[in-house]
Nucleic acid binder design. Structure first.
Lengths: 243, 243
DNA sequence: CGTCCGGTTGAATGACGTCAAACCAAGTGG
DNA sequence: CCACTTGGTTTGACGTCATTCAACCGGACG
């Protein structure tokens, strides 16, 4: 009768706040003064860690792109994210004794290894660090929930649009171009992340390209109209876009 | 040909480790000695908090069942979980300044309010508490990733089977019957959580019932064969089950 | 040069969504 | 007591969109 019995959400945390990098406040310089950190290079295709290995350290991505995936006993597998520069990987495994996911480099990466016992010591010494770690965890949680929502409520074309929008924003946050970038991952990886098949991802990219919203050439993406892309990802506009 | 070049995951964290309650090590008794905690009753249908409200406290569920959901500006919404006794809610909002999801009671609940500043103080005083909180965060993260995998790789019948299996395990962990329980949430809530429509959930339940795996009567669920249910949820058995 | 891998595209199939009707239990009011 | 509503659930018929299966293309590489 009145102003809708259904609560209209006045406040919406996504996606703006989602697109900031996770460890906003993680100061690696201060951290390395506090503890010994190890710089490591990882070649494309190599694992940073594998599910089942004993949990020893967190890793801060200093350069490069990674793929995180989780698998089950019966052979099912799903990509759960694509960490990049400035993000902390390994946090999902804290407290479980061993790593629970696979993290593999998509290209040559430089990562900083933070042995977990030392992290704990440093946290005790620097309360701000503890807060930063907790916030990183919580933000990661919000990210996952945002993607759960995206995958649960959007169709294939919209999911791909949302994926591109997310990549663009993360590139911008790193100082790269948000309108022109190269996908580091295969169609199959994207499909797994978005709970689609790789043919469907290809088709969605073709639809967006046909609508003039993006230009695709193999893994090279050019975003012609970020605003339309956003409408595709967020709302009902896509019916028109993809027609 | 051989054992597949694809890495066969020798170690699998899910679902066994997933089914433990989140704050294994959160000792509320010790905590309440350390800080002032507030006991609150929440009637069924009432909100514990809403997205957008200022973040003030975490909540420990002492009794009852809740529903957590996230919404976007354009009206999309998704249930992201069903917290129950022994779980900590609100952690996803840490560091964001305001709550980022809605949490509503499905039945009459008793919850313990833990004002966040006091939690921080207590963490500083009790290092084990800090560890427990961090672990709770990480475990929640693993849970979300497990469900992402489930939703991304299973069909409708399998998702519903996995959902029932999860509920059964959580009931068992609380000392309730794992083979006979009452769903506190509607078909619509289940459907939203599993990224399906409520008719599809109903059909899936009917399939499982027709296969003799469960008995359904409105919200009352009886699990006739937990082993077959598990095979449905996990693997390829369902084609046979639901036929 | 042939092979392989990743990507693209088309056509057919099928699973889930949509729409609609009916049912059931619990209220509410006459 | 019955008529009527309301919210949740169930079932059927039909439509749609993503998957499946297949063919084909182009670049990388032995």
């Amino acid at each position: 009768m009145t102003a809708m019995t259904a609560t209209t959400p006045a406040f919406v945390p996504f996606p703006a706040s989602m697109l900031r990098l996770v460890p906003d406040s993680l100061d690696i310089a201060a951290l390395s003064a506090q503890m010994t950190v190890l710089r490591r290079r990882v070649r494309g295709g190599q694992h940073v860690y594998r599910a089942g290995q004993p949990f020893r350290a967190l890793f801060f991505v200093h350069a490069g792109f990674l793929r995180r995936s989780v698998a089950t006993a019966d052979g099912r597998e799903q990509v759960t994210g694509f960490p990049m520069r400035g993000e902390l990987v390994g946090v999902e495994s804290i407290g479980s004794g061993h790593y629970t996911v696979d993290v593999v480099a998509l290209d040559d990466c430089e990562i900083i290894e933070l042995p977990y016992p030392a992290v704990l010591d440093a946290c005790a010494a620097m309360p701000t660090l503890q807060g930063a770690l907790t916030q990183a965890l919580a933000q990661e949680l919000r990210r996952d929930q945002y993607w759960m929502l995206t995958l649960g409520t959007l169709n294939a074309d919209q999911r791909v649009a949302a994926f591109l929008q997310d990549l663009a924003a993360r590139h911008r946050a790193l100082g790269f171009s948000a309108s022109h970038f190269v996908l580091r991952m295969s169609r199959i990886d994207i499909a797994s992340f978005l709970a689609l098949k790789h043919e469907t991802v290809t088709r969605a990219l073709s639809h967006l390209a046909a609508a003039g919203i993006i230009a695709v050439e193999r893994r090279e993406i050019r975003i012609a109209c970020a605003e339309r892309l956003g409408r595709c990802a967020g709302g009902a506009e896509l019916a028109r876009c993809a027609a």
